[in-house]
Design a protein around this nucleic acid. Structure first.
Lengths: 135, 135
DNA sequence: AGTAAAGCTTACGTTGACGTAAGCGTAACG
DNA sequence: CGTTACGCTTACGTCAACGTAAGCTTTACT
C-alpha cells in the first residue's frame, strides 16, 4: 500500500490536530510543511503529519517557528551535504543544551512554587481557624 | 540599615539584569514592578529586583507577562482578603500542574533529540569513513 | 439549475512585547 | 556656559503568528 490512503485533506488535518486551515497554509508558506497538490487542493502526507506534531510540541516549549524549521532539518538529513549536516548537528546540540538548562530551571521553579503553595495553605488554614473561633 | 542603600537607578538595573530602560518602564506600566520616585526619577527597590528575576525566569518558560503578573501576586499574599487568596492559590496550583506537564514533555523531547543526535553522529562518522576510503 | 460545502488566493487587521524617535528637564563636567 | 549624560513622557513603528474578510472555483447534493 503506497501513499494513496496516506493523504489527508486540509479539513481532516484540522480536525485531527486541532488547528485552523489558516495555520496549515501559513506553515506551508513558511516551509514547515510540504503538502502535495491535487489541482489546487493541498493533500497532506504522513510526513507532513509527523512534522506537524513536532511543530506543535516545539511551540509548547516556546520555540519560534524559525527555530522549529531548523530543528526539522534534522529529520531530513538524508539529502544534505556533509557541511550542512555538520552545521545542523551543532544547532541541535545547542538546542539540547538549552533544553537541559530549561529543565533545570523548571525543576527549581517547581520546587519554589511548591514551597510557596505550602505556605499559602497554612495561612488559609489559620484564617479558617480564626474564623471558626470568632463564631 | 533601611532601604537607603537598597535603591538602584534605572541604568544600574539595566546593567545588572541586561534589560533596556524601555523594558523596565514597560513592566512598571503593566504593574509588574513598583519603583519609588525621587522627583521624576525611578528608584528600584530590593523587592523590585526580586520580582524582576522572577519575571525574566517566567519569560524563559514562555509565560506571558499577564500570567507572570498573576504569579507574582503569590509573593504578595500578606494583604489579601481570603477569597482573593483562595483564588490566587488555585491559579498557582493550576500553574504548577502546567509546569509539571511541561517538564514531562521536555523530558520526552530531550530523549528524542538525544536519539536523533546519536543517529546523526553515526552518519557523520560513516561519511568520514567513506571519504577516507576514497582518498 | 440552484445552492451549500470545501478549497483557494490576496490582503488587511490584531495582539504582545517591546524598539525607536522626538522633545524636554536637570545635573555634572571641562 | 556650552554640551554631554541620564532621565522623563508621549507616541508611532515593528515583528511574529496567525485571524478575518472578500471574492472566486470546484465538487456534491437535491
Amino acid at each position: 500500500m503506497p501513499d494513496s490512503e496516506d493523504l489527508m485533506s486540509i479539513r481532516q488535518m484540522c480536525a485531527a490536530y486541532d488547528v485552523t486551515p489558516r495555520t496549515l497554509r501559513f506553515y506551508e508558506s513558511k516551509e514547515l510543511l510540504f503538502p502535495v497538490r491535487e489541482g489546487q487542493k493541498r493533500l497532506f502526507t504522513k510526513s507532513d503529519r509527523a512534522r506537524l506534531k513536532l511543530i506543535l510540541r516545539g511551540k509548547r516549549f516556546g520555540f519560534s517557528l524559525e527555530e522549529i524549521r531548523q530543528l526539522l532539518e534534522l529529520y531530513n538529513i538524508g539529502d544534505q551535504q556533509q557541511t550542512q549536516l555538520q552545521r545542523t548537528y551543532e544547532i541541535a546540540q545547542d538546542r539540547l543544551a538549552d533544553m537541559e538548562r530549561q529543565r533545570a530551571e523548571l525543576d527549581e521553579a517547581i520546587a519554589e512554587l511548591r514551597e510557596q503553595l505550602d505556605w499559602g495553605a497554612k495561612i488559609i488554614a489559620s484564617m479558617n481557624q480564626a474564623k471558626k473561633a470568632a463564631e
